[in-house]
């Protein structure tokens, strides 16, 4: 089979299209690159949807945590503590078995036991907690002067939040939020190793990389391929978030713009 035929057969294997059987022997480099890349579709799917949905919950949770009203503050604090204080791996396991149990109660929960929805819900809640904490930190470090100036100009309530506080919060939080996006994307690799089944061998990039490493007993080919894919996507994330960062800070003189610093201390 030529390489182009392999690409045709396996490019969308992770979604269930193309060749049914995974390669069993005579593994070629082309097969490995194609299949691992095919699995990457799932990583991108989980990453983008969880991040987009999590953004809104995160803003809500951050506002809740900084609220003076304990009825709003306590739930937000607990939500953040529970999802940041326990390993994502355990959260996936717990959620999977919880959904399995709920499935026996009502059939509404059927789709939740498959990864595309169940894991997405967990990732969504998890990233909301992490992002909420980032936004909360940004909210607390908004310069006093800006809020006082807003008060002096007669802004109040929703208008003050929307025009003054929210943009500054985004600006302050953006570098940390970029990190969060990168690590959320990396965390998507945990899904198929934590209970959620890869039906008909439709898995993510790490699932296929692990498949090849198990079959060939040679980790030195599939894992570097996986690493290359992930570094590429990380660079894309950095580029996109960097552009948004530049737009958020477009009113500031160039040298006083906050620099994006990338740290890797967020593994869950």
């Amino acid at each position: 089979m030529s390489c182009w035929e392999t690409v045709q057969a396996y490019a969308f294997r992770s979604l269930g299209f193309g060749e049914r059987l995974l390669p069993r022997d005579d593994f070629t480099l082309c097969q490995q690159v194609t299949l691992i890349g095919s699995g990457l579709i799932w990583n991108v799917y989980f990453g983008i949807l969880a991040l987009a949905a999590g953004f809104f919950l995160a803003v809500t949770v951050a506002l809740g945590k900084s609220s003076p009203n304990p009825l709003l503050r306590k739930p937000s604090e607990w939500f953040i503590f529970i999802f940041r204080g326990s390993p994502l791996f355990i959260q996936f396991f717990f959620a999977y078995f919880l959904f399995l149990w709920l499935k026996s109660v009502s059939s509404i929960y059927d789709p939740f036991t498959s990864a595309w929805l169940g894991a997405l819900v967990v990732l969504f809640l998890n990233t909301s907690a992490y992002t909420g904490e980032i936004f909360y930190g940004a909210l607390r470090s908004i310069p006093r002067g800006e809020v006082e100036a807003a008060d002096a100009y007669g802004f109040s309530g929703l208008r003050r939040f929307r025009r003054i506080i929210y943009p500054t919060m985004m600006r302050l939080a953006w570098p940390a939020y970029t990190n969060e996006a990168i690590f959320l994307f990396h965390a998507t690799t945990l899904i198929y190793f934590s209970g959620f089944p890869a039906l008909q061998q439709r898995g993510d990039a790490l699932y296929y990389a692990n498949y090849f490493a198990d079959k060939t007993f040679n980790p030195f080919v599939p894992y570097p391929i996986l690493a290359a894919y992930f570094i590429a996507v990380t660079l894309v994330i950095v580029a996109i978030f960097g552009m948004i960062n530049a737009r958020l800070n477009r009113h500031l003189p160039r040298e006083s713009r906050p620099r994006m610093r990338f740290r890797f201390n967020l593994m869950r």
Binding site: L190, P219, A227, F230, L235, F262
Partner: peptide, 14 residues
């Protein structure tokens, strides 16, 4: 940096 940690775990063990 840039690679999921879990991939390192799976890689290094073998």
């Amino acid at each position: 940096r840039g690679v999921p940690d879990i991939a390192f775990f799976l890689f290094f063990v073998i």
